[in-house]
Structures are given as C-alpha cells and as structure tokens.
Amino acid sequence: CHSECLGNCSQPDDPTKCVACRNFYLDGRCVETCPPPYYHFQDWRCVNFSFCQDLHHKCKNSRRQGCHQYVIHNNKCIPECPSGYTMNSSNLLCTPCLGPCPKVCHLLEGEKTIDSVTSAQELRGCTVINGSLIINIRGGNNLAAELEANLGLIEEISGYLKIRRSYALVSLSFFRKLRLIRGETLEIGNYSFYALDNQNLRQLWDWSKHNLTITQGKLFFHYNPKLCLSEIHKMEEVSGTKGRQERNDIALKTNGDQASCENELLKFSYIRTSFDKILLRWEPYWPPDFRDLLGFMLFYKEAPYQNVTEFDGQDACGSNSWTVVDIDPPLRSNDPKSQNHPGWLMRGLKPWTQYAIFVKTLVTFSDERRTYGAKSDIIYVQTDATNPSVPLDPISVSNSSSQIILKWKPPSDPNGNITHYLVFWERQAEDSELFELDYCLKGLKLPSRTWSPPFESEDSQKHNQSEYEDSAGECCSCPKTDSQILKELEESSFRKTFEDYLHNVVFVPRKT
C-alpha cells in the first residue's frame, strides 16, 4: 500500500485506493498535508475557505447554543480562536489581540433580562453583547459592586439597553466600559436606550469621564423622579442622539420631579488639616426662599486615587461607600458681607490618608415646582503625618564578641513616609551569675543571650482551647457569634421535631 494509506488498500502504491488515510483526505486521495488554498479540518480532512465560511455563517444565523462559528488559524479551520487571539470578521482569520481579548457573548432569543446578581454573573467577562440587555433589578445585597464585577467589562451592545423598574439602582456607572450601543435591534418605538419607572436612579454616568455613542435609535425617559433633566440632556449631547427624540420621548413632568437638581456650584473657602482632623468651610448658599434650606450634607471617604465619582458603590438597598454628615444651616444675616460661612470639623480620621470630599445642599421643593440647590466639586484632601507606631517583631542576635545583629519589621501604621529608623542602645553591667558559677561542674549549661522565638506554653494553649472559665478566673470563653447562636437554635429545633416524629412513629394507638 501507499505510504499515506492506513489499515489496508485495494490497489498497491495508489493513494486513492486506501481504506483510511494516515494524515489527511483531499478529493478522494490521501495526502501528507493540505496544500494551499485548503485548510486542515478536524485533523483528517482538507477543506477550502468557502466550506469553513459556510459553517461560520450557519452557526451565526441559527443562534443555536453550542454550535461553533468556525475560524481560520495556522492553516486550520477550527471552532474558535485560541487564547490571546480574536477573529477578523472580513476573512475569519485569528489575529493577536492588542491588550485583553474581546469576548463576544451571543444571547438566546436576542435579549437577556438581568433581574438578579445570579443572572448578571452569566455575563461575567463579556466585552461584546450580541443582542439586547434588559435591566430589571428590584433589590439585593452589595448590588453596585456585584454588577460592576460582572457587567463592568461590557464595551458594546449590538441591540438596545433597557432599564425598567430597577428600584435598587442609583447610577449606571457599573457599566464602566460601555462605549457603544449599535441599535441594530430596537425596542418598540425605535428606541435604543429605554429608561422607565426607576424610582431611585439619580445618575446615568459621570459624563466628564465617560463617552457613549448610540449609532441608531432614540432615547426614552419616563417616570424617573430623581433623575434630573440636565442629566438626560447631557446624554443626548454626548451620545449623538440630540435631535432624534420626539416631543413625548422625554417626559418633562415625570423626570426629576422629586430630585434636588443642583444648578449652582458650592466653593470651599477654608481648608485646614491635622493628622486626624480636617476643618472645612464653604461659601454660604440661600435659595430664593431661605426657609427652603434644610441644611447641608457632607460626604467623605478614603480615596487612594483621584478618580472618585459621587455615586460609586451606591445602591438604593443601603450600600453606600460614603460617610454622610448632616449639618444645620448657619444663622442668616441681613448683611451679605457678614454672612457666616458654614463648615464642619471632621474628626477621627487616619493620618497621612487622602480623602475625597464634597458637600451639597438639602432643600425642600418650592411652590413653583422649581428645584434649587448647590453642590461642590469633589475635592481631595490629605491629612498630615504623625509619629508612626512601633516597629514590629524586633530580633537581636550576637554573632561574635563585638557585634549584635538587630532586625525588625516595619510598623503596622507608618502614618507617613518613613525615611529612617533611630536605634538606641545602652551598655549593661555583666551578670554576677557568670562569676559565681563553678565551671568545672559536669552538665553545666552556660547562660545564653542568643534570641529564641517566643512560644506559647501548654497552660496558655489549654486556656485558649477551654470553653469555660478556669477556677483562677484568668480566662473566659469568647462570646458566641450570631451565626453560632442561630445554628444552635436550628439544631435544637431539629432535635425537638425529630423526637416528636419518633414518638408518633414508635407509639401507635392500640386498636379498641
């Protein structure tokens, strides 16, 4: 048989008469490798580009789960590009990614509803959504962080984005990388972005840091009482949809009607710091009717980097990364020049730590249904340095008659930039024990000054392991946590139920 035959053949030295091919099969003959313009397919066939392209389009058009959109890589027609490569849609070739590779997620039936953290986790790592997304989240724990972890990498949506009755959302900033909504599939009414009845939605994105392009379709905003109209108009300008909307697409009466839409800028007039305090004062603000001013709200939190936005980490279910302080308005003076500047002394802060701070007014709604208010920009203030805590785990070892090696770990709280350490030492008198000992005694162990690591005695271990207080009263049991108490109650309830079950099964009433 021919060298490319495997198993047997019907005619000697003829690659077209093989029972099976050793390498690849091409047009009725066995070959060692697939010549151009053919590609290896499933490690035994040679196919042309049209064959591989037909497989790709067949799966793409069917949208069946589990099928493969075949691509070409290293002269092979394979189910998908290997790690580190992405497909070129024009020629199906796998090309190296520039940075992290995109991950295209194809949605069944063309859309997916995100109504819980669990459903959001199914899209973790996706960068391109081939379909439409509907966000409908009523509640949950730590929602802002969970949504950002699972949806934060999405850069492109081919269909539309719909935010509907998501009472738990305060902001859409968890879509931190969303840059493009194509609108290839539109919501009824030709809408590519749809926001309806979101009672706590206050911000779409921080438009000073976020760009969003909507290729096709219109915007729809109705019944978002805490979303200011200025935020919607800003989205029109940034996304390129200005002029597409009709009169009733953006409701003037049901958007922002319960919001404090600040239209003035508060400026800080005085800032002073110490290692654990920050004193702030800002310019006074009074609405047209000074009785509408209820006070100020001061927001602050630790910020290692200057990239904080107002609604980071917030949701309507209680999660809030900001510390909020309510401040009463100052006494009002008739003389504008003698107006008191409101302020606040922030206490209990960490030394040498940068804080993000902003302040906003708290006002009631005027009778004319106009909203007044003022808010400052987010500023960054760093507390002063102070003395560091003591170095940890000092170790001293003498390696000769004239040297001592000293080692330690950095302090747990540096409280500033540590530039150097101060080492103090003092000579001590020799131990009298060394002169009084009889060095001729056998088995004498000389006193040693070398360091030995501390260890816990058996008594201390027994005390720590004991669940009861000892007789001397030195140790006591740790208080039980809520989960331990709940577990004990469940076990007790189970024992009672099981005992009742045994009584009912074992003891049967005697027939009379």
Rank of each mutant, 00 (worst) to 15 (best):
F268W: 12
P329S: 07
L201N: 00
I379T: 06
Y160D: 01
D326M: 07
T371Q: 15
L196Q: 14
I188L: 10
N263I: 12
L293S: 04
L227S: 01
P329M: 15
V104C: 03
D206H: 03
L169P: 09
P394H: 05
E187P: 09
V363D: 11
D249G: 05
S260G: 05
P288F: 08
I114V: 10
R281C: 02
F174K: 00
K242R: 06
G313H: 13
Y194G: 08
K253M: 07
K277G: 15
S208V: 05
F175H: 01
K234N: 13
K162L: 15
V117G: 15
I327T: 12
V238L: 10
F193G: 01
N198S: 05
N141R: 10
Q199F: 14
A251L: 07
A149T: 11
N190R: 05
G189N: 05
V324M: 09
F268L: 03
A168S: 00
Q245C: 10
V359T: 04
Q121K: 10
C126Y: 02
Q258R: 06
G110D: 05
R291D: 09
H341Y: 05
Q314H: 04
G295R: 02
F174D: 01
N130T: 07
S230K: 11
K350N: 04
E262G: 15
D312G: 06
K301T: 04
V128K: 10
L293D: 04
L186M: 10
Q258L: 11
S132F: 00
L153Y: 10
K409M: 01
D206I: 04
I327Y: 13
L293Q: 10
V104P: 02
I134W: 07
S269Q: 05
E146L: 02
C261L: 08
F299G: 08
W286E: 12
W408A: 00
L161S: 00
R347A: 02
L252Q: 12
I163H: 00
A149M: 12
S166Q: 04
Q258M: 05
V238Q: 13
F221Y: 15
V324F: 10
R370G: 14
E156R: 03
Y223G: 07
F311K: 07
L107S: 07
R291F: 05
W286M: 03
K103I: 07
P287L: 07
T241W: 11
N141D: 12
N136I: 03
K350P: 13
K209I: 13
E246K: 15
S319F: 11
N150M: 10
L107E: 12
K267A: 10
S389L: 11
L362M: 15
N190P: 04
G140D: 08
R291Q: 15
P388F: 01
N255R: 08
R138A: 15
E246Y: 08
T113G: 13
S166E: 02
D249F: 06
S398G: 10
T113K: 15
Y285T: 08
Y380H: 01
G131R: 00
K267L: 09
K409S: 08
T213L: 12
N387S: 11
T113R: 03
K242P: 11
F193N: 01
F175A: 09
G110P: 02
Y300S: 05
D326R: 01
I232F: 00
A251G: 14
A251R: 07
D249T: 10
F290Y: 14
A385M: 14
D249E: 15
S319P: 07
A195G: 12
V363H: 11
S166V: 07
E122W: 14
R138P: 03
V359P: 00
S338Q: 11
N263S: 14
G313I: 13
Y191V: 08
G295D: 15
G343K: 13
D312A: 04
S398K: 01
G183V: 01
E146T: 06
K253L: 09
F311Q: 13
K267Q: 12
C261T: 07
H233Q: 10
F358S: 14
S260I: 04
A316E: 15
R124Y: 02
L298P: 00
E146A: 11
N307Q: 11
L345C: 04
K234M: 00
F175G: 00
F365H: 01
T241D: 11
L229K: 06
F220S: 03
I114M: 06
Q216R: 03
M346C: 07
E264A: 05
K350D: 15
T371H: 09
L349E: 00
E236A: 13
C228L: 04
W205L: 03
S333D: 08
F358C: 02
E310T: 02
L331Y: 10
E187D: 14
N198T: 01
L280T: 15
Q339I: 06
R244S: 04
E302T: 13
N334F: 09
H222E: 14
L362N: 01
I379C: 13
D206M: 06
L123P: 01
T323K: 11
N211D: 08
N263E: 14
S396P: 14
Q339T: 08
T127K: 15
Q382F: 03
G125A: 04
L227G: 00
N263P: 09
R369W: 07
F290S: 08
G159D: 00
E368D: 09
D292M: 14
N130E: 13
P287F: 12
I114G: 00
N200G: 03
A259I: 13
N255H: 05
D257F: 05
G159I: 00
P288L: 12
E231M: 05
N200R: 05
N141V: 13
G217T: 00
W352H: 15
